[in-house]
Design a protein around this nucleic acid. Structure first.
Length: 291
DNA sequence: AACCTTGACAACCGCAGAGCT
DNA sequence: GAGCTCTGCGGTTGTCAAGGT
C-alpha cells in the first residue's frame, strides 16, 4: 500500500476538524464517495470527499451506520441467545461476536451487552463477569430464551446468518435455529455451545467458586472439545427438553416454574428474573460478590 | 410544565498490530 | 530494522428521547 497521499495526519486537519453527530450532508458525501471509490484509505477518503472529519470517524460512521448491510432495529431473541453464548466463548471480543450476527456491528453488540446484560447482572447484584452471573445466564436466562424462541417459532422473522470465512463446525443449536434456509449452504457456525447447556453442568451452589471477574469465561477450547456438535447441544429443540426443565428444576423447585417470561410477551429483558430467582441467586450464588 | 432519571445508541479515544517506505 | 501510517478493536463518553416524579 502506498501512503504518499496520506501524509496528512488527522491532527493536521487542525481546527477544521468536525466532531459530534454527523449531518445529512456529511452522510451523503461519505456515502457517495464510498459508492464511487470503495472503502479503505479513510484519511485520504475524508479529504477527497470534502469531509472535515478524521479518517477514523469516517470509517466508523460508514461501518456502523451508513453501510447498506447494516441491520437496524431490535435485537431478536435469537440474536440475544447468540450474543450470550458467543460471549461465553469470546468474552468481550465484540467484533468477533458481531461476525456471527450479520448486519450487526460490534458497537451494537457492545451496547447491547452494556445496557441490557449488565443491567441483569446489576439486578442480581452480581458482577457481569462473575461465575455466578455466568451460571445465572447459563441455567436460567439462556434456557428461558430458548423457550421463548420456541414459543415464537412461528415468527417469520429471518434468521441471522453465520459469519463468512469461518471454518468451525456447525453446532446443532446454530444450525437448527439460525440457519434454517437449506439453500444457504456454506454456513458455518460458532464454536460455542457445549458448556452452556451441558446437562452435566450444574450451577456452583457452594458459593466458593473463584472469582472470574476478568471475563475469563469458558474457553473456546472448552467449547470445541465436543467431537460431534450435536452431542453437545442437540439443537434448541433438545435443549429445551434436556436442559431447560432440568436446570430450571433447581429454581422451579422453588415454585417459579411459570416465571420464564414466556407469558409476559415482548422482548423486554426486564422480567428475566423472578423474585424467587433474585432471592435464589442473591443468597446462594452472589453472596461473595461485592458489586 | 419543569426537572430528573434512565435507556439506547452514536461517536470519540487510546492502543496494538499490520503493512509499507 | 526503524519509523510511519492505516486499520481495527475495545473501552468510554456524549447525546437525545422517553418516562417518571
Amino acid at each position: 500500500m502506498i501512503y504518499e497521499e496520506d501524509d496528512h495526519q488527522d491532527q493536521q486537519l487542525g481546527g477544521e476538524l468536525r466532531k459530534g453527530p454527523w449531518t445529512v450532508e456529511e452522510d451523503s458525501l461519505l456515502s457517495n464517495y464510498v459508492s464511487l471509490h470503495g472503502e479503505g484509505r479513510w484519511n485520504s477518503l475524508a479529504r477527497h470527499a470534502g469531509l472535515k472529519r478524521t479518517g477514523k470517524s469516517c470509517r466508523l460512521r460508514w461501518l456502523n451506520y451508513l453501510r447498506p448491510s447494516v441491520r437496524r432495529g431490535n435485537i431478536t431473541l435469537q440474536e440475544q441467545l447468540l450474543i450470550l453464548e458467543l460471549h461465553s466463548s469470546y468474552g468481550n471480543r465484540w467484533s468477533k461476536i458481531a461476525q456471527y450476527l450479520p448486519g450487526r456491528t460490534d458497537n451494537e453488540v457492545k451496547n447491547y451487552w452494556r445496557t441490557r446484560v449488565q443491567k441483569q447482572a446489576k439486578q442480581l447484584k452480581c458482577d457481569v463477569n462473575s461465575k455466578q452471573f455466568q451460571d445465572a445466564m447459563r441455567y436460567v436466562w439462556i434456557p428461558r430464551l430458548i423457550e421463548r424462541i420456541q414459543a415464537t417459532r412461528s415468527d417469520p422473522s429471518p434468521p441471522p446468518h453465520p459469519p463468512p470465512n469461518t471454518t468451525t463446525t456447525t453446532t446443532a443449536a446454530a444450525s437448527a435455529d439460525f440457519c434454517l434456509d437449506d439453500n444457504d449452504v456454506n454456513y458455518e457456525v460458532a464454536p460455542w455451545g457445549s458448556g452452556w447447556v451441558d446437562p452435566n453442568f450444574m450451577p456452583d451452589m457452594s458459593g466458593t467458586s473463584s472469582d472470574t471477574s476478568d471475563a475469563q469465561v469458558s474457553s473456546v477450547s472448552d467449547l470445541t472439545e465436543c467431537g460431534n456438535p450435536t452431542d453437545c447441544i442437540g439443537g434448541v429443540e433438545n435443549m429445551s427438553a434436556s436442559t431447560s426443565w432440568q436446570y430450571g428444576s433447581e429454581l422451579q423447585g422453588n415454585g417459579q416454574s411459570d416465571q420464564i417470561g414466556l407469558l409476559s410477551g415482548g422482548d423486554s429483558l426486564e422480567n428475566w428474573w423472578s423474585e424467587e430467582d433474585l432471592r435464589f441467586f442473591q443468597h446462594q450464588l452472589c453472596d461473595e460478590q461485592v458489586f
